[in-house]
């Protein structure tokens, strides 16, 4: 019985992974503070304010 069947060649594929930049690098927080650009006062959370700087 034929057992050494060759596996058919499959060309390697490049898979592109799209990131959501602000999520990936932790610059967005789901609190009011990050949206209003102020330090968070929400009792359940705290966030440093985001000043426009850098890229």
């Amino acid at each position: 019985m034929e057992t050494n069947k060759k596996k058919s060649y499959k060309k390697p594929q490049l898979q592109e992974v799209k990131l959501v930049p602000e999520e990936a690098v932790l610059t967005n927080c789901k609190t009011t503070a990050s949206r209003s650009n102020r330090t968070c006062t929400n009792a359940s959370c705290a966030t440093l304010s985001a000043n426009a700087n850098g890229s």
């Binding site: 690098v25 932790l26 610059t27 440093l48 304010s49 985001a50 000043n51 426009a52 850098g54 890229s55």
Partner: peptide, 18 residues
């Protein structure tokens, strides 16, 4: 990033915020 940056100095990790 817009909120923080990362520096390295003598192998130490420095994150600066806001």
């Amino acid at each position: 990033t817009t909120l923080w940056n990362y520096e390295q100095a003598d192998g130490r990790h420095i994150f600066n915020f806001s």
